[in-house]
Structure formats: C-alpha cells, structure tokens
Computed example of a mutant assay.
Amino acid sequence: MATKKAENLSFEDAMGELGHIVSEMENGALTLEQSLKQFERGIQLAQASSAKLQQAEQKVSILMGNSTDSELIPFDSTEQK
C-alpha cells in the first residue's frame, strides 16, 4: 500500500498513523532500519499535524475577530459562565 504524504492526510488520520507507529516501535520487533524509517515517518506526521493545528488556531482567531498576533486563550470546558 502506498503511503500518502503527511501533508495530504487529515489531522485525525495523521494522529492515528502516528499512534500506530509509536505502538510498533514500543513493541520492539522492528529492525534498526525499519525503526529509523518509522521514526522519519513519525517526524513528518508530527510536523504536518503541528502545521494543521497552527492553521486551525489562526482561523479560529480570525473568526473570533482577533488579530493573528493576539494571544489565544485555552478553552476550558469546565468553566461555567
């Protein structure tokens, strides 16, 4: 099966694949070469996911009427108004 470029995966798909890679590597059954290849893929997935999160934060900031330089306030679902 061909591996999609990390940038072309949805955030959820990238995180799922990253979780699978972590499980494989923790299992310890991979060769050194396989581990390095999976590590490289994991780095690509983590970087692509981070970029997608930053883009989402910017969109939320813009939609909320804040400038892109504004500090984002973490959402706390337990906080009551």
Rank of each mutant, 00 (worst) to 15 (best):
K4P: 12
A6E: 09
E7R: 15
E7D: 15
E7N: 11
E7P: 01
N8G: 06
N8W: 09
L9Q: 11
S10C: 07
S10Y: 07
S10W: 04
S10Q: 10
S10F: 07
S10E: 10
F11D: 08
E12I: 08
E12P: 01
A14P: 02
M15Q: 14
G16P: 01
G16M: 12
G16I: 02
L18R: 11
L18P: 00
L18D: 02
L18C: 10
G19D: 12
H20V: 08
H20S: 15
H20C: 03
H20W: 12
I21M: 06
I21S: 03
I21H: 04
V22Q: 14
V22W: 08
E24W: 03
E24S: 14
N27G: 12
G28A: 07
G28W: 11
G28H: 09
A29P: 01
A29T: 15
L30G: 05
L30E: 10
L30R: 12
L30V: 09
T31E: 03
T31F: 06
L32S: 13
E33M: 08
E33H: 05
E33N: 11
E33T: 15
E33Q: 14
Q34H: 05
Q34S: 10
S35L: 09
S35F: 14
L36G: 11
L36E: 15
K37P: 01
Q38Y: 08
F39L: 13
F39E: 13
F39D: 11
R41D: 06
R41Y: 02
R41W: 00
R41G: 04
I43W: 06
I43M: 13
Q44D: 15
Q44I: 03
L45V: 03
L45A: 04
L45W: 01
A46E: 07
Q47W: 05
Q47R: 12
Q47G: 02
A48K: 04
A48W: 01
A48M: 02
S49E: 01
S50K: 12
A51I: 08
A51N: 09
A51C: 02
A51M: 08
A51Q: 11
K52R: 05
K52I: 05
Q54D: 14
Q55E: 14
Q55K: 12
A56F: 01
A56Q: 12
E57P: 00
Q58C: 06
Q58F: 06
S61N: 09
S61G: 14
I62F: 10
I62K: 09
L63H: 10
L63N: 13
L63T: 09
L63P: 00
L63G: 12
M64W: 01
M64Y: 02
M64K: 15
N66L: 13
N66M: 08
N66H: 13
S67M: 01
S67C: 05
T68A: 15
T68S: 12
D69A: 14
E71T: 14
E71Y: 06
E71N: 09
L72S: 08
L72H: 03
I73L: 09
I73S: 10
F75V: 10
F75P: 00
F75M: 06
F75Q: 07
D76F: 00
